[in-house]
């Protein structure tokens, strides 16, 4: 099984920052199933993109403003949820804030692409591709697809699926899209906190809202303007919205 860890953070403190600097390299080293992961630039660097009546609407900031926000992500491969929970509970952010463990959608689900197949050959291939340095002059962005879970009509859904495939093909051809996959419904999430050495789990995403993250894409673009343009072409923006956020500079 493959899982997305959404690392959520709050107000930074010197004490916490020191722990993170010390512990995160060890966490990365000890997490064998880790495929890829990066911290994100702060929520101020986020843009949220919607397309309504053919107009691209861009707003500053993340799709939802909260005290705790997604500060990074990791894609991990584990045998089951228990293993994923243990990996999340070893992540130092879970000692201060929360780590949401969200399964990726099955490869057969609509919007899923068979890049995340369970067999380790393809996993290694994916890890290698994601590890390739971003080209000079380009920046990598995380797109989070924010959906409201209310099903579209069958025709609309078919159109979204078709247009998504076309978007992937087009962006892939231009070398823009490097990775993308649908996530299982937010109700399938488990939120992990560690307090006083005890792992505390809760059912559902770290923040319960009407809108939730339905999938992620990673794109490499020359800058935020190109990233917004590319995002606006994604069919999801016609019905929902996509948050675009650069990864933290190395």
């Amino acid at each position: 099984m493959n899982y997305l860890l959404l690392i959520s953070d709050g107000v930074p403190t010197a004490d916490k920052a020191a722990t993170m600097r010390r512990e995160i390299p060890a966490w990365i080293r000890d997490t064998r199933g880790r495929i890829y992961g990066q911290p994100l630039a702060g929520p101020d660097a986020a843009k949220t993109v919607r397309v309504r009546d053919g107009q691209t609407l861009v707003s500053d900031g993340p799709f939802i403003e909260t005290k705790e926000f997604v500060a990074g992500f990791d894609i991990i491969s584990c045998t089951d949820l228990d293993e994923a929970i243990e990996v999340a509970a070893r992540h130092p952010v879970s000692w201060f804030h929360t780590v949401e463990v969200r399964p990726f959608a099955a490869d057969t689900a609509p919007g899923a692409r068979p890049w995340m197949a369970d067999d380790s050959g393809r996993r290694d291939e994916l890890a290698a591709r994601l590890a390739t340095p971003v080209a000079d002059g380009a920046t990598r962005y995380l797109l989070t697809l924010c959906v409201d879970g209310i099903p579209e009509s069958d025709e609309e859904e078919a159109a979204i699926d078709r247009d998504t495939e076309a978007w992937i093909a087009k962006m892939g051809g231009r070398g823009v899209q490097v990775y993308g996959h649908a996530l299982a419904h937010a109700e399938m999430a488990t939120t992990v906190r560690v307090r006083d050495g005890e792992t505390l789990l809760s059912d559902g995403p770290f923040i319960e809202t009407k809108e939730f993250i339905g999938g992620i894409d990673l794109i490499d673009c020359a800058g935020i303007d190109e990233a917004v343009t590319v995002t606006a072409e994604h069919p999801i923006t016609r019905f929902h919205m996509i948050e675009v956020r650069p990864l933290a500079p190395e």
């Binding site: 045998t79 949820l81 228990d82 419904h185 109700e187 399938m188 059912d203």
Partner: peptide
């Protein structure tokens, strides 16, 4: 039951 299957609860 859906969570057991799709989240991989062993």
């Amino acid at each position: 039951k859906a969570k057991i299957v799709s989240a991989g609860i062993p």
